[in-house]
Design a protein around this nucleic acid. Structure first.
Length: 473
RNA sequence: GGCGGCGUAGCCAAGUGGCAAGGCAAGGGACUGCAAAUCCCUGAUUCAGCGGUUCGAAUCCGCUCGCCGCCUCCA
């Protein structure tokens, strides 16, 4: 498949370096607060990319995502609350995994905490000092940016440009204003670890380098995150990793576009802020997923209630088809279908092809969703016309729909469990009601339908007879 | 100031050199006791504007207008 690589600014053919397993690293949450709706985008997009590779490309993915459990924001939050940093981190880490579960996102293969790898970070910093890429000043350690000649290759900046840009605060301790912190001397009351430079804690960009290397080796296949991380975060990661090893840190860099609200990036200061869990109180998980995948991942995505409501209708169209077909064919055996059914089933492959083509072209989920919608339309058309055994062919369409939805996390809601007794009782009720309708005793017939609706069972009178379904969760 | 991106029907949104996907909304029709679901029909001679390259451009180049992101913590 082809993926747009920020490093080369082009779409490139992607294959895992060993031809088998994808080594993928995605920047994870800083657990000082709940995820907001912007944070959700990389989680859903790269989670779906991972599942697509596993389910359709045949590449198992080792997916590593860090949990940043020590940093300035966490320390500030802990002090506000009169808690320890560890308590704050534990609470929001738990919330994060609950959110993944709610959304049906497969958890990362590894979710290392930064604080579990402090010794690795110390080794990294030490290695950089030994090679002349870093220096210690007053208990802090800084990376010597000018020593790494390829600095700026990811973000397309040159050191000269950056210096003239000069919004970077000068520091007496740094040799150069562009140098960035690898290790911070501890201030009173802050979490701290012993190091060759005294007590302190790791600075910014060290954790991703150390964690990714620990689980995935020196060269990653894919490193992904929001495009606001390109500079300085990812640029600095490359500098550290490549200065130390001399090897390519990551072959591909993937960046998702920002979530906006009314066209502007969401932020607390603008007041256009919402938590992920709040959206999930208003919309079901598959609607939320559909919304996030309804725009190409590299473009900005504008959040609004209207957009979510539209996603809900779009996703419901497919789910209605699935659930109605399953209701219609409930109890029916595996029938062989005739010419019409066979022809219909043979034609289904074109939707899968369109889907694969879109997904393979820089993970174009929008095109993939279009293919899914076309599959839904075509199936509905067939459903309206088909009679007899050919209707069994609908099973094939539904099964394809589920398969295409699987990497995206769509259409996976478990089939409603129906016990044999319920099945028989419903058949009885429907039979009696049909007789009432035949006698035009609609009042009683409608009462049965209304009462069933109250207990969560929906009756639909279709040309093929009455079907019943449990109401959508 | 530097770097990057975007502007496609009422709304959302693919496509990035060869007759403009898909969804939502709207109108008409079919089906129907009523519901529900579904089907059919109706939409951009046109892709912010102006020039240029080309047999051919929404797609390439230049300019103009408008919007956004990064350059400081940020998904």
């Amino acid at each position: 498949m082809r993926l747009y690589n920020t490093l080369t600014r082009r779409k490139e053919e992607f294959e895992p370096q060993d031809g088998k397993t994808v080594r993928m690293y995605v920047c994870g949450p800083t657990v000082y607060d709940h995820l907001h709706i912007g944070n959700l985008r990389p989680v859903l997009v790269f989670g779906a990319l991972r599942r697509y590779m596993e389910l359709f490309k045949g590449w198992p993915v080792t997916y590593v995502q860090n949990i940043t459990d020590v940093d300035d924001k966490l320390i500030a939050r802990a002090q506000e609350n009169g808690e320890t940093v560890a308590e704050v981190a534990a609470r929001y880490t738990e919330a994060y995994f609950q959110l993944l579960d709610r959304l049906g996102v497969v958890p990362p293969t590894h979710s290392p905490r930064a604080t579990e790898h402090i010794s690795g970070m110390i080794e990294l910093v030490q290695g950089l000092i030994e090679k002349g890429y870093a220096y210690e000043k007053g208990g802090d350690v800084y990376f010597r940016v000018r020593a790494f000649k390829e600095y700026g290759k990811l973000s397309g900046r040159s050191v000269d440009e950056l210096r003239s840009g000069a919004r970077i605060a000068a520091s007496d301790l740094k040799e150069d204003p562009l140098d960035f912190t690898l290790w911070k001397a501890a201030k009173p009351g802050e979490p701290k670890w012993e190091s060759p430079w005294g007590e302190g804690r790791p600075g910014w960009h060290t954790e991703c380098v150390v964690l990714s290397r620990h689980y995935l080796g020196e060269t990653l296949d894919i490193h992904a995150g929001g495009n606001d991380l390109i500079f300085p975060h990812h640029e600095n990661e490359i500098a550290q990793a490549e200065a130390l090893t001399g090897k390519v840190f990551s072959r591909f860099w993937l960046h998702n576009g920002m979530l906006t609200v009314n066209g502007e990036k969401m932020s607390k200061s603008l007041g256009n802020f919402a938590y992920a869990y709040e959206v999930l109180e208003r919309f079901d998980p598959e609607t939320v997923i559909y919304f996030y995948l309804s725009r190409h991942y590299r473009k900005p995505l504008d959040y609004s209630e209207t957009a979510l409501a539209e996603a809900e209708k779009a996703v419901d169209r497919a789910r209605t088809l699935i659930s109605e077909v399953e209701a219609e064919l409930r109890g029916a055996g595996e029938e062989e279908f005739g010419e019409a059914g066979s022809e219909f089933v043979a034609g289904l492959s074109r939707f899968k092809e369109k889907y694969l083509e879109a997904m393979d072209d820089d993970f174009n989920t929008v095109g993939a969703l279009a293919a899914i919608q076309e599959l839904v339309s075509e199936t509905n058309r067939f459903r309206a016309e088909a009679v007899g055994a050919d209707r069994g062919a609908l099973r094939e369409a539904v099964s394809l729909l589920r398969a295409l939805g699987a990497p995206l996390g769509l259409f996976q809601a478990a089939e409603k469990v129906v016990t044999g007794l319920t099945d028989e009782l419903m058949e009885l009720l429907i039979e009696l009601r049909s007789e009432l309708r035949a006698k035009r005793e609609f009042e009683l017939a409608d009462r049965i339908r209304d009462r069933l609706k109250e207990i969560g069972i929906v009756l639909k009178d279709t040309p093929q007879g009455t079907i019943w379904q449990k109401e959508e969760a």
